[in-house]
Design a protein around this nucleic acid. Structure first.
Lengths: 239, 239
DNA sequence: GGTCATGTTGCAGCCACTATAACGTTGCAG
DNA sequence: CTGCAACGTTATAGTGGCTGCAACATGACC
């Protein structure tokens, strides 16, 4: 956050799907290696954290498991947390998508839609391999199981809050300094997403993540009046 | 968070109000010194952070300013953040007060009431000296002004979320594992409190903190439907 | 005044993270 | 295919947050 942020690759490309010789299509050898290293690091991080707990894994361990030097780890991730919680490349998309929603939608609707569809896309099912070899589900399991990471996730999502708040303000022409609504909506929405995702992970992925999140937004839009506001929606969806 | 948490004193006692010879009433000399040290550390931390920014203040600086050894700093606070964000002793009160609200109140009402009255109590006015010589307002100013602290505050409040969620679950007899409502309510409430307090600090304390928070809860209970849901309430309150 | 409990300190050490400067690879142009 | 330039990797050394431990000092109580 302080530095120059010249962190190199991004997960968001190169499926490396089942086809083994999709190796050469418009990515150079360098890019492929970078991506491989990044994935190895992420994967090692998740494995180690899952088995030992976040506090008992050092950056050195992760680097070793991915067979790179500890210093190299920091060329890919700005912090140990980032390797586990990841997803930073998604911030830009989020902004663009909120701004891109039809203008007759209320900010609430726009945010709900964007958040839900993002989560739907990256959560398919606990064992699908879509584009991120290290998946949302594993991350959320790790977070759910580790007290330190539960706190870290909240902090991590502060970045999302800010982006969402700015995008909402831009949509409505509000001034962030004088109008607390964008920040309020963003924070509440991220709280919903976080609680819902952890609930989803806790339940082993039984209900689709998207449905849990949508139920959370529904409860939110009903003013959180009633403890049944969410469970009912979920039960209805499960039928 | 990992250790034994045998951190010693607590702010929540000994007004040391204007009377200078309230020095001996049922506090021992030791207790008074501890409290003084704690306050000196907190105060030094806030001063230094306000003038230089969080990242450019070391624990050594704070300890030096309070005239204790760096090691002693960690006898009082588990981390540098804690010295600035503080207020941990408040967690127990929060739980008790939520459980103590009349049982005909909905969880939402109970949480709203407790949060609002807490904030009302500790925010009186930017220059009052009530019981905490280092005040909520200064803290929120520091947080508002420093990007790192904005994130840290979110993480810090995760502890509150948990306590509130547990208390709500206990009130309603819900099972935290199967019912996401308590966590959802707690997270949303803390989001409201946080956004409102930062807004309050940004505005220089013009509107009473309590009113801003209450407006936030009102917007939340209206489902965040509309960007005017909060500003209108605020305007009405200001009249 | 003696003694026990409690708070303070220095020291040694772990780990996250950074700056810098070699060093090895890759890509590319001739 | 050769050599150069861009780029990624690594070792080294250092800063700072934080902890455990073992003296040491100070206040409490008899």
């Amino acid at each position: 956050m302080t530095g120059l942020s010249e962190h190199l690759p991004s997960d968001a490309a190169a499926p490396t799907t089942s086809g083994q010789d999709a190796t050469q299509h418009d990515t150079t050898r360098r890019d492929r290696k970078k991506l491989a290293t990044r994935q190895a690091l992420r994967c090692a991080a998740l494995d180690l954290v899952a088995s030992r707990g976040y506090a008992h894994v050092t950056v050195e361990d992760i680097a070793e498991a991915a067979d790179v030097s500890p210093r190299t780890f920091f060329n890919y991730f700005p912090s140990k947390e980032a390797a586990v919680l990841g997803d930073d490349e998604l911030l830009g998309e989020l902004r663009a998508e909120i701004l891109g929603r039809p203008s007759q939608e209320t900010p609430f609707q726009a945010v709900e839609h964007v958040v839900c569809s993002h989560i739907a896309a990256r959560s398919r099912h606990p064992d699908s391999t879509w584009r991120d070899p290290v998946e949302l589900y594993r991350r959320m399991r790790a977070v759910q199981d580790d007290p330190y990471l539960r706190v870290a996730l909240v902090a991590h999502m502060a970045a999302f809050e800010r982006v969402v708040a700015d995008a909402v303000a831009e949509r409505t022409g509000a001034d962030t300094a004088s109008d607390p609504y964008p920040a309020l909506l963003a924070s509440a929405a991220m709280a919903v997403a976080r609680v819902a995702l952890l609930y989803w992970a806790r339940g082993g992925g039984a209900t689709a993540a998207e449905d849990v999140v949508r139920a959370g937004f529904h409860a939110l839009s009903s003013g959180l009046a009633d403890s049944s506001s969410m469970t009912e929606t979920l039960a209805k969806g499960a039928r």
